[in-house]
């Protein structure tokens, strides 16, 4: 591989180049504006966030139930009338209650469902990091005589085998699935 012949600095340079390339590509791709949304497409994106009231857990966009069709009809009409997404959502909530939206509201008690996961993950990461930090420099556990004997025996076997085997190419240890550095 090309990388094998490069010195360390060259290899790092390749990484930096990669990161720059990826960054630029992502920037271009992420900021690329899509075609302007037609009324139907905007209505569809609103429909995808509204729960079909008479179905089990699918959105109004996905359902062919009568209630879903009625909501789609209303949403399209209101989108054409120039209402915003929030206004349309608010109207539906005023009729069906907050359960009509597939996203739980982020105010009130339901805010917990949004807040708990990131907080829990952050707390767990902090806990693990501090446990790891505390372990730094901890003394290695003592070793029993049994273990020393096992290690010595295994090493002796290996030395004997290496001595008896034919000289081999420096291909690294003969283990299944062994990963040899490129």
């Amino acid at each position: 591989m090309i990388a094998r012949r490069l010195p360390d600095a060259g290899r790092w340079a390749l990484w930096v180049v990669l990161l720059v390339v990826v960054g630029v590509a992502l920037g271009v791709g992420a900021s690329r504006p899509g075609p302007p949304l037609t009324a139907v497409q905007r209505a569809q994106s609103i429909d995808a966030q509204v729960r079909c009231p008479s179905c089990e857990d699918i959105s109004v966009a996905d359902s062919s139930a009568s209630t879903a069709q009625a909501i789609r009809q209303l949403v399209v009409a209101r989108v054409r009338a120039g209402q915003s997404d929030q206004q349309i959502d608010a109207f539906l909530v005023s009729r069906y209650g907050p359960g009509i939206l597939l996203r739980p509201p982020d105010t009130g008690v339901t805010a917990w469902v949004w807040v708990l996961p990131p907080v829990a993950v952050a707390a767990a990461v902090a806990g693990l990091a501090s446990a790891l930090w505390r372990r730094r420099g901890a003394a290695a556990p003592a070793v029993s005589e049994d273990d020393r004997a096992l290690v010595d025996r295994a090493l002796a076997q290996r030395a004997a085998a290496a001595g008896a085997g034919t000289g081999d190419t420096p291909a690294g240890p003969r283990g299944a699935g062994s990963v040899v550095a490129p």
Binding site: P53, T67, I71, R95
Partner: peptide, 10 residues
């Protein structure tokens, strides 16, 4: 289904 919608009927 608009009347049902107005009443939030599931």
């Amino acid at each position: 289904g608009q009347i049902a919608l107005q009443y939030g009927v599931r």
